[in-house]
């Protein structure tokens, strides 16, 4: 993986994005046409596996670096990666708890939400992951212009996602009677989207810091842990949404 050149890496990122987009469309179709929950779960797991391997590079945790000096940058970089993944593992228990709570409270029913909007924000977040991967790969190959374009695109899409969920979806839902205090269904909907939006917001702040530092030339192809950490965190937020989207919009009968 380390020896492939830049255009190959970028092409790979694009191919994975196409796969993810097709799977998302398939997911929507399965939900509308068949409504098979098990199939939706399988599709979500495949999507998560693709993101974790090709975008988050989970295999880098398996670095064989026993022979390296403990105080070298390379060895510490691998330790930092481990620390970040442990944090994500911990964080996934919050989202897992919310996910399980949703099924405990609602079972196989769901609140009536705007399907077009749901698919739209999901696509926006997925596209932002594609640009994030592009930005990181560009930085790894010393292409600062590509990096800045990628990060800016990610930021715009991330803010677009927030605007879509907080600015359009929430008022819409409240108008439709799904409010935080009306029912447990409304409560869990606002809690899940709210907790996720909070993570998107922190990701946006993180990316802004990385953009500022990156445009001042602080990162290099060898040393850009800040960029990599922001990318892994951003993809993690996407992974969470890969589960939350079907859980909120697609699974079960309307209440």
């Amino acid at each position: 993986m380390e020896h492939t050149n830049k255009s190959e890496i970028l092409r790979q990122g694009a191919i994975i994005f196409v796969f993810l987009a097709v799977l998302t469309g398939l997911e929507f179709f399965v939900a509308v046409a068949i409504g098979a929950v098990a199939l939706l779960a399988v599709i979500a797991l495949v999507k998560v596996a693709l993101v974790m391997y090709y975008y988050m590079h989970i295999y880098k945790l398996n670095a064989q670096d026993e022979q390296l000096d403990r105080h070298s940058f390379e060895y510490k970089l691998n330790t930092r990666r481990l620390g970040l993944w442990l944090f994500l593992l911990s964080d996934s228990f919050v989202f897992g708890g919310l996910f399980v709570s949703r099924f405990n409270l609602l079972g196989l029913t769901r609140p009536d939400l705007n399907q077009v909007l749901g698919l739209a924000v999901t696509s926006v977040l997925l596209l932002s992951s594609f640009f994030m991967n592009r930005a990181e790969s560009s930085m790894a190959h010393g292409d600062r212009r590509g990096f800045i374009i990628g990060i800016v695109a990610t930021l715009i899409l991330g803010i677009g996602f927030l605007a879509g969920v907080l600015g359009v979806e929430w008022p819409n839902a409240i108008k439709a009677g799904v409010t935080p205090s009306a029912s447990a269904a409304g409560a869990i909907f606002f809690m899940m989207t709210g907790m996720h939006a909070f993570h998107v917001l922190t990701g946006v702040i993180f990316l802004s810091i990385v953009l500022r530092n990156g445009s001042r030339g602080i990162y290099s192809p060898e040393k850009h842990w800040g960029v990599e950490a922001a990318a892994i965190y951003w993809h993690f937020v996407d992974v969470v949404w890969i589960f939350f989207y079907p859980a909120l919009y697609l699974i079960g009968k309307l209440i």
Binding site: L86, L89, S90, D91, F93, V94, G97, L98, S101, L105, P180, S181, A182, S183, A184, G186, A187, I188, F190, M191
Partner: peptide
């Protein structure tokens, strides 16, 4: 590392139930 998040979540849900009337 892992389980602690769930007591945080449980307590947070009650906090929101008290503050916003969310009916978890």
């Amino acid at each position: 590392l892992t389980a602690t998040q769930l007591i945080g979540l449980a307590f947070q849900l009650v906090m929101f139930q008290r503050l916003l009337g969310m009916g978890f």
